[in-house]
Design a protein around this nucleic acid. Structure first.
Lengths: 327, 327
DNA sequence: CTGAAAGCGCTTACAG
DNA sequence: CTGAAAGCGCTTACAG
């Protein structure tokens, strides 16, 4: 690989001058500038980012730590993170933690030693919080709130409000007997949603009925079966997310229950699949695009020296589709 | 951030010794070694990967260039790429090209200047091929074949065979009137599938009927509508992939056509959604996991100095589910 | 406007 | 076994 030194030699200038031409950091004699530009063009020279990064202590990379890649919600967020990063001239480097605290920490460490300019972290619970303080790198918590005052910002949808909307919607659809499929209680998103559900039940004097679940398809199947056993007269299901809503539908269909006629289902997230699926899933829309873009912009703005807001709770909406019906 | 020099000072040794302890590159006096280890433990020191990478000319990172993140096929491959990379102690850095040649080239250049140890490339057509030669970094072409002799290896499923299986399956199901939804002809995967379809039609003396399509949901909807206009008596549809199969189903359903009774559909890829969808999609299974893992292993093995095979065409299988029926 | 020098934080011959 | 030195390829004060 050709280096700046060779470009300098070919153009008859010093490496400093080549650097200045590339980065526009100082005025350079017009003729020399053109010579340098020509040599760069001819040789296809591309400056070594590693060397640059070592000096600048900035790599123009943003690290993203995701629980897993199986959940489309994360994939969709990642898409917007990448897009915004690209626009702001950052690369992203993605790690998966498998919801595993040790791997989370390992990834965090690795990303820091890579001089990333910031880290977008979707972590599970408080464990990792303690470690955060020792790093002076901007960390944005996404979706799941660690309540760490060491991080730059926290961005998530209003999970509580979403659960309230979902519950009230089922009430408006005439459901009396409803069951909430809980997400893992060590995820803040799940905790807030549960609260929203319970508060709404209390407000409307409806019995609180729950079943433990997770955010994936397989668990969704198992939990739905359990749910039907435990609450055979259920009229409405609040699924922990869209994937689980889909698994609930599958189980109901295999038992010849009609959706929404016999039993209604509300999902959460509004992933793309929820409107592609048949029937289309009624769900709570999270502003996925905004969450992803904001995370990147927050880091970029911070790097530019701007003061950034540190807590965003974004509004969600109810999207009525085919798994519920007002009557 | 603490550096190796400070660790050395605290442990009362030279930076060289600290380096040797960390990397196990030479024997170190037992007592000194313990002192160093203790200091590392206490300070939480983590060596700067950028500096390391600058010297070693290896970053322990593998670049992945994907056309987009919307297509679950790519997401699922990425999942296995990441997993295998993690096992072999590599990080992955993901870029999206939006099927855009300029962005592909830009990403390629960037990844190279980051000292990545290898690049996994899903590129569209031959444009980028020419550029490949000037880099002495292992590049593995995935899924889409560029026919470049400059790349380390090419790995893909047997698209031709897949199309043959799909076509013969529809024939076995009693379809006479079938239509093939073509993928973009500048993707090698689409070309091979078209060939397989056409050869099979010729072999069984069936009329070749096609309609242009792409690999995404929206185009799938449009193409299906066009298809039904052009071939109103169609009995079987070979969709360009599973997502398009799903859109075809949506269109048929909205027109009150029954699947598989009135019209059958075969997809391609066997993404996870194809068995979650209702009805479950009959499709051609690509060995997604094997493709992803092999790509990473190829690069890792090459880095270890092993000779790697340069061309893998992996077998595919027909997975019969609910969108076709033998009668 | 421009070049020589120093340094970013590591690693590895080299010499002892 | 171990330290001092040189170097990976850049960038930026510094001096002119």
């Amino acid at each position: 690989m050709i280096s700046i030194r060779e470009v300098a030699k070919l153009a008859g200038v010093s490496p400093s001058t080549v650097s200045r031409v590339m980065n526009g950091t100082a005025n350079v004699d017009k003729e020399k500038k053109e010579r340098v530009l020509r040599v760069i063009e001819e040789t296809g020279f591309s400056p070594n980012q590693v060397a640059r990064s070592l000096f600048k202590k900035s790599s123009k990379m943003i690290g993203v730590i995701l629980p897993n890649i199986t959940n489309p919600f994360f994939t969709e967020i990642t898409r917007y993170i990448e897009d915004e990063a690209y626009r702001l001239d950052y690369k992203i480097i993605i790690c998966y933690s498998d919801n595993n605290y040790k791997k989370e920490k390992e990834n965090l460490r690795m990303l820091i030693s890579m001089n990333t300019d910031g880290i977008i972290l979707l972590a599970n619970d408080g464990h990792i919080k303690e470690g955060l303080g020792s790093y002076h790198i901007p960390i944005v918590e996404l979706d799941r709130n660690l309540n760490s005052d060491k991080s730059l910002a926290h961005i998530s949808a209003n999970h509580y409000q979403g659960a309230v909307l979902a519950t009230e919607h089922l009430i408006n659809c005439g459901c009396k007997n409803m069951v909430n499929m809980k997400g893992p209680i060590n995820f803040s998103s799940a905790r807030y949603r549960l609260e929203g559900y319970m508060d709404t039940c209390k407000k409307y004097n409806i019995e609180i009925q729950t079943v433990d679940c997770d955010y994936d398809y397989k668990t969704g199947i198992k939990s739905t079966e359990e749910l039907l056993n435990k609450y055979p007269n259920v009229e409405g299901i609040i699924a922990s997310n869209d994937i689980v809503a889909i698994s609930a539908y599958k189980v109901l269909k295999s038992m010849n229950k009609s959706v929404p006629e016999d039993i209604m289902i509300v999902g959460f997230d509004d992933i793309e699949m929820s409107k592609i699926f048949t029937p289309e899933i009624t769900t709570i829309h999270q502003p996925i695009e905004e969450i992803g873009r904001k995370a990147v912009r927050n880091i970029a703005n911070y790097k530019k020296g701007e003061i950034v807001q540190d807590n965003y709770i974004l509004d969600v909406d109810l999207i009525e589709r085919e798994t519920t019906i007002r009557r």
